[in-house]
Design a protein around this nucleic acid. Sequence first.
DNA 1: AAGCTTAGACTTTTT
DNA 2: GTCTAAGCTT
Length: 698
Amino acid sequence: MPDNPGAQATFYEEPAWLAHLNPAQREAVTLPMDSHGAILAGAGTGKTNVLTHRIAYAIRGGMEPYAIVAVTFTNKAAKEIKERIARLVGEEAAGKIRLGTFHSLGLKFLRKFGHHIGLERCETAAPMDEDEAVALLRRVMKDRFPDTDLKVEKPKDHYFVISQWKEQGLYVNDVPVQKTASANFTRMLYAAYEAEKKRSQALDFADLVLQSNFVLRHHPEVAAVFHQHLRMVLVDEFQDTNPIQVEFIGHLTGTGHSVPTFVVGDDDQSIYGWRGADAGIMQSFLKRYTPNHLVRLEQNYRCTSTILDAANAVIANNPNRIGKRLWTERQDVGSFQLDIFADAEAEAGAIADRIRNLLADGIPPADIVVLYRKNMLSRGIEKALVFRDIPYRIYGGLNFFQRREIKDALAWLRLVQNPLDEMALFRAIAAPRRGVGAKTIEQWKTMAQKQGVALWDVLHSDKKASIQSFVQIVHRLRQVYEAEGLVVLVKKMLALTKLEQYYITAAKERGEECAENLQELVIAAGVFHHEMRATGLHMESLARTPGDLLSEFLADAVLNSDQGGQKKKEGETVSLMTVHKAKGLEFPYVFLLGLEDGEFPKITQSGFCNLEEERRLFYVAVTRSKFSLFLSCVRNRQSFGYTQDAGDDEAEDGLDSHFVSRFVQEIPAHLLGDAARLVQASSRKLVGSETGSDGDWW
DNA sequence: AAGCTTAGACTTTTT
DNA sequence: GTCTAAGCTT
């Protein structure tokens, strides 16, 4: 390193700006720049701080910002990291770092190099969302396998399996012959799905990474450009990466992993196994990327010792950990309690009351979060909060860009961006209705095929007035966009298509809401425009193509779909989210509800349960709390409008038997106080029920 | 082709 | 209970 000052400059020992870091953090930040590093960072141990300081350390040492790639798992994390780096090295340098999620980096890559896989107009490409991908598969099934009963062979199920294969890195020809007829049918569908996708120039989520890998594999000259220019690759939340993402990283770091790679993660917080992530990925990194340094961050700055004791005790039940134990210097106790309610209504009411009291005591709403295992559980709390006039914000669930009216509007925008987008065409032409249905489209399709032209060209020769006006609107909007930009385009689109009036009359009670959402879309476009202006490029990337605003906006609507469209501002509301969404976040007051065994851990109807992953999920939930943690469960929880009893026999103190989550029972009794007695009463039935270490357990 | 009615699914987590 | 898709009617 010393004899190569140009590329790596001088890295001094413990500069003053690193003085506030603890020894382990400082060691991680200042690891030799020419070796790989794996940072095992427990919850609340300053993981992001280490990552951002490592980047700043490199830049201050003379590394060019654009020689650094940093990959995160969510857009939110990318944004936060960028802001924090900006504070360390300034906006300009921070803006040059190639930072983004795997998917946004993959998209940027394909926008530049997609022509290698036959992607036309690749520079403005955008992926389909999941609904569209499933719809495409359904169409394939109908066209190619018309005898299939779609109620038996559900498109969604097949899409799920195909996605799993793709996340594992299996291309069509890599999937082995399956054991069951149904699985082999999926295998056939995979090929047909890929063919149709290619024909219609569409991409699904997995393609963003998988197809990028394909290009990098088969075009070493492209890959070479990256590892020649890159000096450092960093991966956040490395425990959640799946095989195709690991391969993507491998392509960037080059043959023999010549580019120093710095991964940060926590095997105890690996909660995306269902998406192909392998909790053992940290271990295999240590084997494959050598030489390397492993640094453990175990001092926790977030939680009280009570909460840490509980979290450590629960996670200790997982075998196969790299192993670490969080500790804190904090002496304050906060509060930690469990409540058991009769039903979900009582639970929601009690939580909402408690939140109201906290707010009355002057606690800012932004300090409070309600966490749950699955989105559906937000409903009860929502109701209770609305009843008490408490402002809240739901993260995740059905998001803004997935609403029907918004998707219709986006279809118009997509058509303006690319008239050859057939899916957008079908959607836009029916919103509002203009006398075109399945039959007409079939005719057009055959006509297009016969003449060897695009569907869009066929529309031009149609003499019907409604079709002509449709075509005219698209052309007119294109001119509007080119002359006046994105925001005016969205406004004019609503005006010319009369979508708002259409929904007000057609959607009845929901009409007003639809119209409001469409107005919200104008605002979202304005915000997006503003952000792009402010930051130069929204998604910094490997392939920094300038890209036009419309195609960036459309891609953002798919890749970053949970942002935007929320009327209440962040910071003024209580937060509601799933535990998955909460990873990486922290709140002084955390409510964790729905802690019934079978719900959390989730046990499927077939009896399957990935107990270790569920336990990690519980560990993530508990360690979000900076001060207070309120756990709760109910004896009866309704689902689908029906009441289901939790247990059929009763313990002597009137409680149903096995309903409290086994994870709660793994918490040392002395930490739970009064509630421990109740838990113990319900735990007798559970003794010995845990058989296997993971996977199926009964 | 559009609008209405009904049947069935959804409920694990997300880019 | 709520939402969507398929089926039936106009």
